[in-house]
Design a protein around this nucleic acid. Sequence first.
DNA 1: CTGAAAGGGTTCGCTTTCTAAATCCAGAGG
DNA 2: CCTCTGGATTTAGAAAGCGAACCCTTTCAG
Lengths: 154, 154
Amino acid sequence: MSQIPLARRSPIPPENCNLARAIELIGDRWTMLILRAALYGVRRFDDFQSELKCPRTVLSGRLKTLVDAGLLTKRAYKVPGKRARPEYVLSAMGISLRPILIGLTQWGDVWLGQGEPPPISFTKAGSKGAIRAAFVDAEGREVRPDQIRAVLRG
Amino acid sequence: MSQIPLARRSPIPPENCNLARAIELIGDRWTMLILRAALYGVRRFDDFQSELKCPRTVLSGRLKTLVDAGLLTKRAYKVPGKRARPEYVLSAMGISLRPILIGLTQWGDVWLGQGEPPPISFTKAGSKGAIRAAFVDAEGREVRPDQIRAVLRG
DNA sequence: CTGAAAGGGTTCGCTTTCTAAATCCAGAGG
DNA sequence: CCTCTGGATTTAGAAAGCGAACCCTTTCAG
């Protein structure tokens, strides 16, 4: 049943594991929902708020954390006749989470979709077939899940 | 700078988005750390506890949630001469999160690694080069991030 | 036949975080 | 000036997190 052999401990202690660090940073309901919205193009405080329906205190705290961590960049935008306001746009660091959230979307489509077809799918520009998250080698060829091997440094 | 066009709302309301549902389920610090450990082979209550150093109350609650959601399966194991104990093993649903957590590991290696080489890397069985999370089309060929297009159903 | 050990929890208070609602604040327009 | 609007902070109560202690069952040792 389980392909994963029993272990009493993970091979890497969580306190110097980059996965654990990433979880520490973005492994939070509101933070992830903020990133989801940001990847769809939402940038403004009130837009986030009406999208997420989260407390404004939490939103402003999370935005600050994400800016400090470098995932979002705070900059001013100005609609003519209105005062300048800040907006929160994804940095390269934030945008590079996109494959992960798309992967999680597709995982949700499979396991949590309640039998309905997925409301959003992803294709390659100019073609029609769906694409999916997978692993590739240096040449860009797919590696099947059962062929993945973990290698510890040291 | 930002390739993502401004939006006031996400195209899919969070309440029927499978990504939002997935975040609801696993988008939590302890839950994700439990899954991380489980993917490394940890199965037993006390092993999780000494790995994560989280309150036992929180651990037992999260394990219950994950079993109820179908990510973990609770079953008995028996060491000869000891009493039978439950263990928590990943189901197919849980194992299929592996690419996502590996992807997040690699994201952390790039952005949170503090310049150090990653403590763990991933290769294809029988070869040496590193593999990475990416998108592939139906034929298993890589699709570059800038070629990804989202398609709404409807 | 006691008694301790070991794994897997629950109970119990205390602290932190979340949440909702109200309030503040700065600048543009009238 | 007075108001409107988007971005945030304050405040007080609810929920969740936390550490320590305790409980429960079986197994082994004396």
